[in-house]
Design a protein around this nucleic acid. Structure first.
Lengths: 195, 195
DNA sequence: CGCCGAGTTGAACTGAATCAAGAAACGTGG
DNA sequence: CCACGTTTCTTGATTCAGTTCAACTCGGCG
């Protein structure tokens, strides 16, 4: 099931953005493949070792602690990138933890290497833009959902955006992601089954 | 108070991202300066004529109608870009209106021209990334605020992010932006004066 | 086998919405 | 430049969606 590094880089080119042979080759030399177990944490609060991951398989969640409560901030799936957003883009220590929700295979690259490759290969820079733009559009949609929808609408909306998430992710994390309590989500689910 | 096109392009280079002489010159030829009055709408729902604006002075808000109610989705200020996000990045008709909240001076450029300049000038493409990344980080922060804060915390947070907004923007728009009712915001303000 | 975290259910409580009505501010035309 | 109508803002009373607190169930793991 796990891919080797060459296959992973081909997957990036195919699923996200095509890269030239030369760029692929250098990317190969500047990245590390790693596998993590369920519940393993890949980025900790306070982390300053700025890096980005491509998710080959599995999934992760980012969360932070607010008054001791674990609040999920986002979920990331196969064929997407993940990083601690403030750490990466604003150069401050990570305020998030990033944790695997399943057995997950990752490709790791440091910020310096991303910077280097972006300078040298225009197509690599474009890959970055593509990913940033996609994230921006998703965040925008999520805001509309958080702004004025009821708890139930937010949940149904999430199921529409991320089909099957309710089977992969514990209720407690979905609840905090939606900004509602576990109890409320549990009741929403119960009511939904009846329909 | 109004700038000419040359001054505007210099402002972009200075405030956002430096451009080469050649790129500036071509940008000059591919853009239009316009001034709009308070309450004037520059992008309508259903608009398919995809374009981007740089705001020279003044400010705008984007809003949409949900069950007949006017809901403000974001505010944009001097020295920033604005567009209808789904229209621009997903090629679907605009779901937003964009309206001037003050006398506003703008620089207009079509999506095709942005595309052309981005292809031709790498630094122009980088200007675009810079702006996208900035927007992404802002959206992320806003989500954290919408997710678990009380109405009062959301308001105080906005005042911190956008000092002086309460003096420039009618209460009703700030309330819908925060996802709360006018009445609630009015009470929050009243309570705050007492402190 | 027993413990612990995840999920469920119920009852009481509360922050914010809704409904309603009046006051203030705004801008438009005469 | 004033008068009138419209929109924005305020204030109060009531209602309700979702939280909080508490107790109990279930399934998996050591």
């Amino acid at each position: 099931m796990n891919k080797n590094k060459k296959e992973i880089i081909e997957a990036i080119c195919e699923k996200l953005y095509p890269l030239t042979q030369e760029c692929k080759s250098e990317l190969y030399d500047l990245t590390t493949v790693l596998s993590v177990n369920k519940k393993e944490i890949i980025i900790n609060e306070g982390d300053t070792n700025t890096r980005m991951y491509f998710i080959v398989s599995g999934m992760l969640r980012a969360y932070y602690l607010k008054d001791g409560n674990d609040i999920t901030d986002w979920f990331t799936y196969e064929n997407d990138f993940v990083c601690s957003i403030q750490n990466f883009f604003e150069d401050i220590p990570s305020q998030h933890y990033i944790e695997a929700l399943e057995e997950t295979q990752l490709l790791e690259i440091t910020k310096e290497n991303i910077f280097h490759l972006s300078q040298k290969y225009r197509e690599f820079e474009q890959l970055g833009n593509f990913s940033t733009t996609q994230t921006m559009v998703r965040l925008q949609k999520r805001i509309v959902s958080l702004q004025f929808e009821t708890a139930q609408q937010k949940y149904l909306n999430l199921l529409k955006e991320r089909p099957g998430i309710e089977l992969r992710v514990p209720l407690i994390h979905i609840a905090s992601y939606l900004g509602i309590t576990n109890e409320t989500l549990s009741r929403i689910r119960k009511a939904k089954v009846k329909n």
